[in-house]
Design a protein around this nucleic acid. Sequence first.
DNA 1: CTGAAAGCGCTTACAG
DNA 2: CTGAAAGCGCTTACAG
Lengths: 336, 336
Amino acid sequence: MKLTIQEVAEKAGVGVGTVSRVLNNHKSVRPETRERVQAAMFEMGFVPNPHARRVAGGKSYTVSIILQVIGTEFYLRLLNGLEKTLEAHRYDSALFPLIGRERIERYLNSSTLAYQSDGIVMATHNLGELYPDGKLPTRQPVVIVDGMNLNYDSVYLDNRFGGELAARALSGFDGQMYAISVHQDIDEVFAKTVFDERIEGFKAALEEAGKPLLESHVSTVSFNLDNARIAAREILENTTMPVNIFAAADLVALGVLEEAARLNLEVGRDVRVIGFDDHPWSAERGLTSVHQPVEAMGAAAAELLVDRLSGYDGAPRKVRFEPRLVERASTLHPGD
Amino acid sequence: MKLTIQEVAEKAGVGVGTVSRVLNNHKSVRPETRERVQAAMFEMGFVPNPHARRVAGGKSYTVSIILQVIGTEFYLRLLNGLEKTLEAHRYDSALFPLIGRERIERYLNSSTLAYQSDGIVMATHNLGELYPDGKLPTRQPVVIVDGMNLNYDSVYLDNRFGGELAARALSGFDGQMYAISVHQDIDEVFAKTVFDERIEGFKAALEEAGKPLLESHVSTVSFNLDNARIAAREILENTTMPVNIFAAADLVALGVLEEAARLNLEVGRDVRVIGFDDHPWSAERGLTSVHQPVEAMGAAAAELLVDRLSGYDGAPRKVRFEPRLVERASTLHPGD
DNA sequence: CTGAAAGCGCTTACAG
DNA sequence: CTGAAAGCGCTTACAG
């Protein structure tokens, strides 16, 4: 049923070693030979057995992906970026959602799982909260994504800068200025600071533009559309138009759009709003948003880890991603 | 570094075959021999290499767990039950969160992953929505948990009966009767019908008790505490006490408790409330709740699958779990 | 650049 | 009940 390297070798008229080398992108294979082998594999629909590979190679070719949340669009996109890149390097990925603190302990203590993976990608900010020295008790290479840690390779977005971009775009408009931040459940294992950073950048740049943000104009909602709508309503019903709102996430900005529609307010004139994320649906909603290349961040993290697994052993590296503002109808300029 | 079966064999003074047999709970090993080998393994801290096992045995000893949601307490508990039982049978589990429809296609099409698992546990109700014949396009054994499917072994809770239990408990009390249901995001791949079933059972039993539930007394919230509080407030502020509320989930009932506290209403007298789940924290909150043995359901599903993987090939089996009511302070009887 | 061979750590008939 | 041996499907020095 299942094909083996042996059969591919016969078909291609080479030895199994050569097939293996092709499989592993080994440099010393003549281009023609490589092509012939690849053609054979393709024709036969050959899929190598990863388990055999692991036993023979002494590596597991599996990476653990540890996330504290799974249900949001951001993490879905991040996951896609990670998995796709890992797959391209012929690594498998095993997912560990960190709901509840017990799970991380369990993960780290599970000898079976430890056997399974060669490295870890972790999406989190302050490991120091859980481990005093800020290090995961493991000898596997670790890469942090959507966060920063001095001990490990880290891939992060400059969220503060994103907030500044929003401020610069809104500060030129008339009307009151508002911001809606996001808080998370207290019982989550790792705190997420990205929302705070965005708001801080927003405040700082507004201050600099001579239009400081009133403390009372900052509200905080939990991460769901219904709550966003409530916060938006609060603002829209008690303020004279026009009003400018920076939402720390697209989902929150969506709440503003929906409430504005309900109140028959014109978005772009009466209400200007900027979200954060630039998720795929933002474009069709005409939402101006601070764009973050989520998939690319996942891919970058995967590359860093694969790099380490391939032998790189230098100091921790930092990859900074810079957000950019994508302007759409929700921040129309007067006269446009 | 890593120990092998070979070293265990030497230490125990047996052949590697015997060690392997002990590892696999093979019957034909003398009890004393078995003990000696186990002692050796324990002393050395031996952990078998699962990859070698897979190559040699031709099975992957991995089960895929496909869930549409991960972030809730219910799924966390279910997952724990599944993983623990699978582990006891020396199976690994790989988790696949189904956020977005594309992911299931991707999972099923990934040849690497297909290689990885021997069977699938899936938490979902209507596979028929995605596949006309109600079957997953795979030849792996499939077990459905927290749902029912005629094609596969299924483990489910009688949610309707749970609603009936709540109705029977509340129907004896004075005051108006209310129910709060839960709806889910439309874009979720698989619809969850458990909440509807609970409410239906509640309605039916109330009808039977001669106290039919008014349509206008049923509200529906999305699954988060803030929304539950809003729905609770709506009821509590517009009704004369006492009032009886059945919440389709503990989280929703918690919203009722919190709003009652805010309005200085006495729970158990002014407001009687019954939740559903009986999550661990319900006890300390004094919440009467319909108990479902979530971990046990996970364990049962795991057992069914392991059974199939061990050769069982009979018709699909159904395992029905029956909920029971756990009465606490939130439904105090008058005079207690 | 490539083939033949040894080896990865297990499992499993095959003989006893 | 148990050992010795072959085999699972790969990888990787080792020679050429």
